[in-house]
Design a protein around this nucleic acid. Sequence first.
DNA 1: TTAGGGTTAG
Length: 591
Amino acid sequence: MEAKQLRHDLGVAGSAPKSPAYLALLRAGSRIKPLQQVHAHLVVSGSHRSRALLTKLLTLACEAGSILYTHRLFLSVPIPDAFLFNSLIKASSKFGFPQYTVFFYHSMLAFCIPPSSYTFTSVIKSCADLSDLRLGRGVHSHALVCGYGADSFVQAALVSLYSKSGDLGAAWKMFDKMPDRSVVAWNSMISGYEQNGLSKEAIVVFDQMRELGVEPDSTTFVSVLAACSQLGALGLGCSVHRDVINSGLHVNVALGSSLINMYARCGNVSKAREVFDSMKERNVIAWTAMISGYATNGYGTQAVELFREMKARGSVPNTITFVAVLAACAHAGLVPEGREAFASMRQDYGLVPSVEHHVCLVDMLGRAGLLNEAYQLIKELGAEEAAPAVWTAMLGACKMHKNFDLGVIVAEHLLEVEPENPGHYVMLSNIYALAGRMDRVEMIRNMMMGRSLRKRVGYSTIDLNHRTYLFSMGDKSHPETSEVYQHLDELMSRCREAGYAPAPESVMHEVEEEEREYALRYHSEKLAITFGLLKTKDGVSIRIVKNLRMCEDCHEAIKFISIVTKREIIVRDKLRFHHFKDGSCSCMDYW
DNA sequence: TTAGGGTTAG
């Protein structure tokens, strides 16, 4: 023990002195060219038969990203041993070649070499990366047969496998029977819930973890903050941020980006920017998080400005950065900037625009009224690129600019390629209604009913004192229902006195005629806002998260609510934010 | 003649 410590202190950790050939490999590192040179050297000097040298060469080649070279080298080894297999399995799993991990694992079994617990952790991770739950279950059984069912690393890997695959029941079952759960196992469980859209459950597990006195680490916080973002739970997010500060943990890039994202997705852009400015290290993800935060909150100019700064500072944008920038341009009507960014993607960065980029571009042109140019663009796209999402953006533009003829063509195309999507029927019937073609509205409604399609149910949530309250249209399940409805009625009459006029075409055919005004009045966002007004003091901002997009009537009504109550109201809808204040919205009615 | 695992950000 003392001798080992002494060696460590002298900086000569490791036991035996390394051979010159081994040192040459270490010098080459994970760079393919130098590795090949060393390899050639080994062959010439005859030392390529050394198993140790070959193993090191193989893992370095894998780390360098050249799996084909690694594979070729592997095939040249006549009788691979356990050490070689485990090294290869670990390296291929760690450096992103899960299909090879599985291949080496099968190959190992074919050579009748028994796997170890280390083998299983890597193989299970690769099954998770491949989203191959069937294979994962098989490997799980094999691990049990080999006697590794109680290994805490294998168990943690299995928790991660099941939660990533969406089988949270199996994940929990595994997690629940773990005798000692490491922080990593907790993290797997928390992120599993969060990534499957079960943010509330993620928070519950986080609370349990702390009740049991397990210290969260930065990975825990990253997942918990992501859960807060999903919920739009600003209060909770702030308290988690305080926990991060109190924990004294270093705010690394992942944690910083997660904080930026949380604040931005909860509608507090200035706090997001504060975090961004305080970060010592920034990578493309951090920059993109901030740009995207500006974009979704309606600060298009700031998003484009930050994008310029990012490039000036030498950070290289990727495809996701461009989605954020183009979305910013679309929502803020920055057409020249958007065109420039789109062209630059390919020209300056060699990035191929995907469906998402085309959606933004069509959206941008369409909103700006350049319908023909947008339509031309779609027609020039290949069949695969002109995905339904691109046509949907086009349809939105047609409705916005009341272009009946083009709208019908686009909608009919969408009904043909996606007859199961209720959104398209609703959109087409809205267009017919705008054109006064009520016969067609009726026809579309019947078509939809004939195919047993129903419009998705809209709901809104509000976060008060760390609790999330959910409201859906006409919902009366809430204990304070009558109070909320009564207050909403009073509120709407005050709005009407201030000049608000309901626009019944917003609900269209989704409900029966006599229910229209009722439905319009009790849309979920209005209920959630009313509840928020009842439960908070004067002057406090109201924050709502909606699962779908807001209708035009609600948008108009909320402007008036912001006047008569003198409150700032922030609504996050499916796509972006609306900050209502003194009768106007940050989206400038451009959404 | 050789190491070591499972979790995280746009």
